[in-house]
Design a protein around this nucleic acid. Sequence first.
DNA 1: TTAAATTATTAGGTTAGCCTAATAATTTTT
DNA 2: AAAAATTATTAGGCTAACCTAATAATTTAA
Lengths: 225, 225
Amino acid sequence: MLPVTPSEQEYLKQIYLYTSGKAVIHTKQLAAQVKARSASVTDMVKRLAKKKLLVYNRYYGCSLSKLGKTEALKVIRRHRLWKLFLAEKLTIDWKEIHQIATWLQSIDSDTLVEKLSMFLGHPVLDPHGEPIPDIYGKFPDTGSLEILDLKINQPASVFGYRHSDKEFLQYVERLDLLINTKFQVISIIAYDHSLELLIEKKKKRIISKETAQKIYVRLLEKDED
Amino acid sequence: MLPVTPSEQEYLKQIYLYTSGKAVIHTKQLAAQVKARSASVTDMVKRLAKKKLLVYNRYYGCSLSKLGKTEALKVIRRHRLWKLFLAEKLTIDWKEIHQIATWLQSIDSDTLVEKLSMFLGHPVLDPHGEPIPDIYGKFPDTGSLEILDLKINQPASVFGYRHSDKEFLQYVERLDLLINTKFQVISIIAYDHSLELLIEKKKKRIISKETAQKIYVRLLEKDED
DNA sequence: TTAAATTATTAGGTTAGCCTAATAATTTTT
DNA sequence: AAAAATTATTAGGCTAACCTAATAATTTAA
């Protein structure tokens, strides 16, 4: 279709991830996401609007057009497939993977992407547990269950994370809440809504309500361990 | 070290491939290689000279500096490793591979390249049989000799394979023709040109003419064993 | 509801990497 | 060795993607 530059792709991806393709993102927010100054973002947003990839309202922010969403989902697909490749096949260290995947995502070849997906066994989650859109841009159904949705004492396992920035991943590692970890919520602290967890039937941890919204889980049967 | 842009990398690669790192290349020749106009090449060559990657003589052409050669060899290494990956692991069609590898070669991460090389089994030849420089920029010395080139009873050792896909590697393993194996051709079967080998002076094996073209060898002295 | 603070945009500049057209140097041919 | 042909360079322009500094719009607070 139309040519979309690597930088444009990164902007579209960041807008999608920030807004889930629904809401409006403001210049300053987008600037923080792409690590550029506001003036540069205004520039770029105008270019993307001219290409019909988003709708821009001066002083109010912008939101992805249908075309922009489609393009963003392709970039996200590429990024996450490469992440999985780098982690699983090349065993590259976490802290380097994101940067390399960001470079790789810009290579826009349908053949490459679909062959890579095939090679990886058409995965639906990247190594952080983030869902990988399929070739049509559709996300796999994760169940969308967060820790916050769990009833007290309901056994569950960690399925993925909403955000996979380095800081967050280091945090969940310190919490011992890596992918597939089994745990249950044992109490909710009334005054700030933070949650007390029992991890692998051994360790106790307290996490904030906000963190509890960022971790996806799968329900387990009571006897499943 | 210094940052070398994707375009600069491609220029260095093309100069190296054209001159083998030794001779001078003229503006027009380089323009043909990189598919740009002469004026653009003059521009770029000046930039590369300023970065000490080559030596430029106005109106006479340029040649790679030591630094430029080192950089070029890294690009060639990346390009050929990716080609092998695309061909062998992703089974992408020949006609698409070169373009995709040219995009991929610009991703300059030592970790990525060495992990990729490891993943591919530290190959010495790309799928076209082109030699892959090692991490220090040294080309393997193939001598470009295939089993098929050997004279009867000429002692030789296995040096590398044109293709290093799993199936082929399993096959050579079954044949006892792993890297460094010593052997000689003892006869050629007339009707289908297949070859009879004597391996390590013990085992006899018959391989097809096609297989004999896919295995690179080194000559050995008669008494070398 | 005006003043202050925040946020967004414009104006103008930079670098990389390409281009065309004009000019200059070199080489070849007569 | 001068004329012609070839090749290379310069001059000037363009786009993408950034930047800073100045200005304008919007929101928040007094």
